[in-house]
């Protein structure tokens, strides 16, 4: 088992290297650079001044030297400085990572709280009105674009009803560490989490429903019934155990997906997380921040898939590693 985790971790190294290379090359290939971005709209910036700065920051060196410098620093946790915010990228991110992780975590929990029971109900009682209702909801959530739905939620619950704050992650007037602070955080999280979760249930519900319908017809379920196992236990002990297994294994992918998906949600709800930062940085061509963010999101994806592999190898005896 340990050997498997170790090998799986080692495989990550070339994956991450490749990712960093692609990220860096793509950033370099984009039109303009940090200097263009920093002086955008500044009439006093002359071409000579810009060129001078490029020389100073090493932006005229061959790309591999720049890459070497960048990766060398990145490994030590230094992603350079943001031109827009005039502070180290690491510090900039540190303030936002927590918010995004919180958002992703809550979205994940709420997604499962909604999706798993619905998937089970739809799968167990197929072709009943409950199943039809759930399937309808599912198609709706699949077809609705995230930003339309989020805007609708924002409009309805914040503007019209005024139940929730319009933006931010916490009320800045409240002192940190108090009960009110936590309540305020939750209030700010509620709409983004619900918007994300209500649409993210699609995959899990669909998968669970189909898997239960398949598993119901498996021979070992017939064996269980032939043993005299009551119907409820047939589900809890035999069908659900088998059908929930892949869901557990998808956990890692879900996390990766949610962190990536935070870009839209955070922008719409003006929620100060990595996603929002990502969009503003692209707009400002703040490439040090963009590359650092892509690296982080990419790493999250790679770790997520690794997590999925490891979870699956633990919960499924058929691929359990000795």
């Amino acid at each position: 088992m340990l050997k498997f985790i170790l090998r799986r971790t080692l495989i990550m190294i070339p994956q991450l290297f490749l990712l960093s290379l692609i990220v860096f090359v793509l950033a370099k290939a984009m039109p303009g650079d940090a200097i263009t971005g920093a002086f955008a709209g500044d009439p006093n910036a002359t071409e000579e001044r810009k060129e001078e700065l490029r020389e100073k920051f090493g932006l005229n060196d061959p790309w591999y030297e720049q890459y070497g410098r960048w990766i060398g620093n990145a490994v030590q946790g230094d992603f350079g400085s943001s031109y827009m915010y005039k502070q180290p990228v690491t510090t900039l991110l540190a303030g936002k990572v927590g918010n995004t992780v919180l958002l992703a975590l809550f979205t994940l929990i709420i997604t499962y709280i909604i999706a798993i029971p619905l998937g089970i109900v739809a799968g167990r009682w197929t072709d009943t009105w409950a199943d039809k209702l759930i399937v309808t909801y599912n198609y709706f959530s699949f077809a609705t674009p995230l930003f339309v739905f989020s805007l609708l939620m924002l409009f309805l619950f914040s503007f019209i009803l005024g139940w929730f704050p319009i933006g931010g992650s916490v009320d800045i007037k409240i002192e940190e560490g108090t009960w009110d602070y936590i309540v305020s955080k939750m209030e700010h999280l509620f709409l983004p989490v619900m918007s994300g979760a209500l649409l993210a249930t699609f995959g899990t519900i669909q998968y669970l429903r189909n898997d239960i319908i398949d598993t119901k017809l498996k021979d070992f379920v017939k064996t269980a019934r032939a043993k005299g196992v009551p119907e409820r236990k047939v589900y809890t002990k035999h069908i659900l155990r088998n059908s929930l297994l892949p869901i557990a294994a998808f956990l890692g992918y879900e996390i990766a997906g949610l962190i990536g998906g935070s870009i839209f949600i955070e922008s719409i709800f003006s929620y100060p997380g990595l996603g929002q930062l990502f969009l503003t940085s692209i707009g400002a061509r703040d490439f040090t921040v963009v590359t650092a963010l892509v690296m982080i999101l990419g790493t999250a994806t790679i770790i997520g898939t690794m997590l999925s592999d490891i979870i699956l190898s633990i919960v499924d005896p058929r691929i359990r590693v000795e």
Partner: peptide
Amino acid sequence: FQDPMTALNPLA
């Protein structure tokens, strides 16, 4: 049952 490959619960 006929097929011992499928008649047993793979997780127990």
